[in-house]
Design a protein around this nucleic acid. Structure first.
Lengths: 160, 160
DNA sequence: AACCAACGTTAGTAACACTAACGTTCCTGG
DNA sequence: CCAGGAACGTTAGTGTTACTAACGTTGGTT
């Protein structure tokens, strides 16, 4: 964690930003996501968590214990990154990682009672953060927004 | 540039991804932006360009010559990163960088004829790429989408 | 028995957004 | 008028994210 001290682009110069630039969906997406990520990351940090923690915990809660590779597929986290995430989760006693007796290549990851409690907390935190994120939109607009995003993402996701 | 050979998350496991995860706007944004960025980056690479190139060229074309710091403000690129971008642009003879006689701290950046031609080309390329990006949406939906993004971004932009 | 696939793990990459600090030049106000 | 601070271009470095490559171990298949 690093303290932000002096902003370098304080007043936004969008006053003088060409429309062709400002209106490009790709650019809007990048910038908004940048803000959104920061908001979420900082919010979760206050709860001693990271985005991946939530993804893994939610997936465990929803579909039960699984191997790391299986979790990787469920949550979209690369299995190379999963290692570190599970180290953190296990270090906080939110999950348990035990070797699978039926397949000694695998670990079985199980969510703990603490993990379930933390997940509930994170769900709350994320609700609050999304309230902030989507504040300017009405209920209907939020739904619209999520729907548009979903359709776009589906369209650009390999394997249908 | 790196060749993608073996995808590691081939079939998406969203079949087994909890709704609470899949539906979060922040997550949709992150993932979609990731795809979008890749699409745009690769498309521009084929035209020997990067996003920043477009931003700078467009800003120069629209508002005329400027110092690096001014360009930085216009385009949202940090002035520490601007250096490299302008090196690339100057290396391709798309802009000219000359010391400002009126203020010897500054460089005056000017777009060249080649730069203008390249900008026209990039505008075309970006139109095509956005056509792909937004393919699943109707005209009206695209406008809606851009409008929602804009409102959200404005709301989360410091300095109004 | 021979192979290949999958598993967990380590290491490394490139892009992005951002901070810090340096020397030079300029502008201002006491 | 001159002292201090601010702006400029530049270099260096940070942490995060997405992703590839390769390793040794284990498992399933023929």
């Amino acid at each position: 964690m690093i303290k932000a001290e002096a902003a370098d682009l304080p007043d936004d110069g969008r006053l003088k930003m060409p429309d062709r630039l400002r209106r490009r969906a790709s650019r809007l997406l990048s910038h908004l996501t940048s803000r959104s990520d920061r908001l979420i990351t900082e919010g979760l940090a206050r709860a001693d968590a990271r985005k991946w923690h939530y993804a893994v915990l939610a997936s465990l809660q929803e579909y039960g214990p699984a191997s790391q590779a299986e979790l990787s597929r469920r949550s979209g986290i690369y299995r190379s990154d999963m290692v570190g995430v599970l180290n953190e989760l296990a270090g906080r006693d939110l999950v348990e990682r035990t070797p699978d007796p039926d397949d000694r290549r695998r670990n079985v990851i199980t969510i703990s009672a603490r993990g379930r409690r933390q997940l509930r907390r994170l769900d709350q935190v994320l609700d609050d953060l999304h309230e902030q994120l989507l504040a300017p939109l009405s209920r209907a607009e939020r739904d619209q927004f999520v729907q548009l995003l979903t359709r776009l993402l589906d369209h650009h996701t390999p394997g249908s």
